[in-house]
Nucleic acid binder design. Structure first.
Lengths: 257, 257
DNA sequence: GCAATAGTGTCTGTAAGACAGTATATT
DNA sequence: AATATACTGTCTTACAGACACTATTGC
């Protein structure tokens, strides 16, 4: 079911819940850089996290997944619901009218329009390789791009705070869930995953102890294969042992990096 | 602002958000028993967690707090938001019409009434001494009472699952937050807090190791006072050292009971 | 052989967990 | 004195964390 923007604006509540939305913190990692995907809605100069409305026929997680796919073109990312946030007025007539008129120069925006109301947001975060993603803004946005986590631009509402809460949640969850699994490609080297964890946690991790722990717990497996990295010693490749990881976590393993 | 039931039914969206609610898992502890507060709405035979709608002028947490106070008469309980849950149809015309007619025999319930719509629920849990609470059902409920956690009656929707998710969250959070602080009275004995933790976690904890850890970390403080418990050796009284606890937790202390 | 990166082992300190006997309060 | 509950200390084991040198690759 594709619903066009005019229909969403004028008849949204037929398809979507009112007053509730999802807000997505999409983290992107690449080469020791942690970034977050932000969009700049047309007509403003403050950035916004990707948000989305929840269809009446889908689950909350499906809504998050759908709106994340719209920005990243990636399906099946591992989503984590981390917190819900209080009311925000996302749109105002000034922002919304031009969008409506692009599709329909006749209709007038009613001041009781559902989009002009307040929305509560249910927060999800996800983590991906940012080099896999071509940020996709669609017609509502002037821009959609990655920003370094240490250099976030001016944001609308309390979205800076939401990013910071998502990052906290990620740093706690990394001890309880297989965060790296879907982020790293199938095969990876120890230095790669080591850099990933150092970047996410923003602190040094002793390389030997880190490697020892990952191998000792059996959650990664060494392959009989090396990666060519140019004029240096070639590192071994590893893969995650997903079953072992899930089992350990289920038994209450806490990784404490 | 007190809003009567007729007004809530007929003009709810003036005061409340649509399609979003809070759902509260109120745990009660006393003497090695963990219970949960449930209500039986008039006209049904399945039990329901206390739910509530969110006023346009309050935060989500205030909504949870307000609806919990309505059932327990207790203010300032420590609430923890633990997860949000997908759509549920809470009311139907059959349940709602008699309630409306109690206040207003004229008005008819419109099938587009906001209460007949689906609601997404934001889940909170809290923990209190159940002997302090006189469950309070108000006019919408036939009954409101404590049920033992190991013996939950038949529940509406997926509320049994929500209780189980709340309990999981509580058992994880007990390692990260001062769960007991607001539950136990000002002064408590080591055997009391020991029983509390054993009950919540549903497993034996070595009494000596448990005591040692609480005292060693400095989060509880021994008083120069004993509690009279009848024909037995009198246990010492302790108090929480809230500042130390908060500081340790902030520094990343994990209690691992 | 030089430059850059990958890989490996040992020691120490701390904390978790197992475990049993003594002390106190009341009747 | 009897009963029921509270209190205390030691040993073992496992893991976290500190730490420095050798190995490989391409140029």
């Amino acid at each position: 079911m594709a619903i066009d923007a005019r229909e969403i604006i004028l008849n949204g509540p037929k398809y979507f819940f009112r007053n509730v939305s999802v807000v997505n913190v999409i983290f992107g990692y690449h080469e020791k850089m942690l970034k977050v995907l932000l969009q700049l809605p047309a007509g403003t100069n403050k950035w916004l996290l990707p948000i989305g409305y929840i269809k009446r026929i889908e689950t909350i997680e499906e809504a998050a997944s759908r709106t994340i796919e719209a920005r990243t073109k990636l399906k099946n990312l591992h989503l984590k619901q981390f917190k819900s946030f209080g009311k925000q007025t996302i749109w105002n007539e000034h922002l919304l009218t031009p969008i409506l008129n692009r599709f329909d120069s006749e209709s007038k925006l009613d001041s009781t329009n559902w989009l002009l109301d307040n929305f509560i947001s249910i927060g999800y975060y996800t983590l991906t390789e940012f080099s896999r993603v071509e940020p996709s803004g669609e017609y509502l946005n002037e821009e959609c791009k990655w920003w370094e986590i240490i250099n976030i631009p001016e944001m609308m509402f309390d979205h800076r705070n939401i990013i910071s809460e998502a990052l906290n949640a990620l740093r706690i969850d990394i001890n309880h869930y297989p965060i790296g699994i879907e982020l790293l490609l199938q095969k990876f080297t120890l230095p790669e995953i080591h850099r990933l964890y150092e970047t996410i946690l923003d602190r040094k991790l002793d390389y030997r102890n880190f490697s020892k722990k990952l191998i000792a717990t059996g959650i990664i497996k060494k392959l009989d294969e090396k990666k060519n990295i140019g004029a240096h010693r070639s590192p071994y490749l590893y893969v995650f042992n997903k079953e072992t990881f899930q089992k350990k976590l289920h038994e209450g393993l806490v990784m404490t990096f």
